[in-house]
Nucleic acid binder design. Structure first.
Lengths: 143, 143
DNA sequence: ATAGATGCAAAAATTTTGCAAGGTG
DNA sequence: CACCTTGCAAAATTTTTGCATCTAT
């Protein structure tokens, strides 16, 4: 069940990028993960697949994927960023994070998600009109 | 209009802490600021008031104030944390941030805030019941 | 007087960058 | 084969820490 996602591969190639082994491995890892992984987490996981991959490649790949809108980067306030495949984790595409300030445990939740989506949509439209922003994403960690 | 806020001072003393010059100066700065300041921003501003204050004190003070629930820490995704006095800036207590991914400009907004507050309250109550979390804060930057 | 706070500089931790070498389309 | 990507190590950034000294209560 590798993430050799042909759609992502195609998009990268169309944009003049290369779908390398390192990138495929990182997408695999993100696709299979049930957690919100830090760059370090991903680095150690990739190394089990391909021990020659370096830290810089992990960061550069995450940056590329984030810019492409395939990966979402989060800051939960502990000094290191976490990454998550958008629409990944076999869950609903839209969810939030509940972060325990004591133990840093993170719970994804989707309670009242429909009501929220409706409100968010209304808000985003209003903001786009009012401030000229095109909304690409939003985050609501509770911390 | 210094922020020698007697209420905060009293709370600190009650909790066995000291309301030092550095802490008062940092509260002043946060209280007067219309922006979301980084530790570095605050450091340079404090230095204009009291040139002997060091970086470590700024970080330690922000940490204390954050733990006390007086200051809110944000990560907007550019690698450095920003700090904001809760209920400060002469604005409504509850607001959100619109962050431009291009230029990093931040706009505070409160559109649909009443509807949102209602939904948030309902959600928080449900989450608290369901997961046993006591909700202390939430953040919704659009990034 | 005394526990808490500070300043300084060093250390830690995370992320970025330069460049020669390698791999992909 | 051209050009994007990688690995490595060094550098840059932000934040934390140790410890002697200072200071608010």
């Amino acid at each position: 069940m590798r993430y050799g996602n042909p759609w992502i591969r195609q998009r990268m190639i169309e944009e003049g990028m290369r779908f390398t082994e390192a990138r495929r491995a990182i997408l695999d890892i993100l696709g299979k993960s049930l957690q919100h992984l830090s760059a370090e987490d991903i680095y150690f996981k990739v190394r089990r697949i391909n021990p020659s991959v370096g830290f810089a490649t992990v960061y550069r790949t995450l940056d590329v994927l984030t810019r492409m809108g395939i990966v979402q980067r989060f800051d939960f306030g502990d000094g290191k960023a976490r990454y998550e495949l958008i629409g990944g984790m076999g869950k609903e595409e839209h969810h939030h994070h509940l972060v325990c300030t004591g133990c840093r445990k993170i719970i994804d939740y989707t309670d009242f998600i429909d009501e929220e989506k409706e409100l968010i949509n209304k808000t985003e439209q209003a903001l786009a009109r009012k401030y000229g922003f095109y909304i690409t994403n939003h985050i609501t960690p509770v911390q």
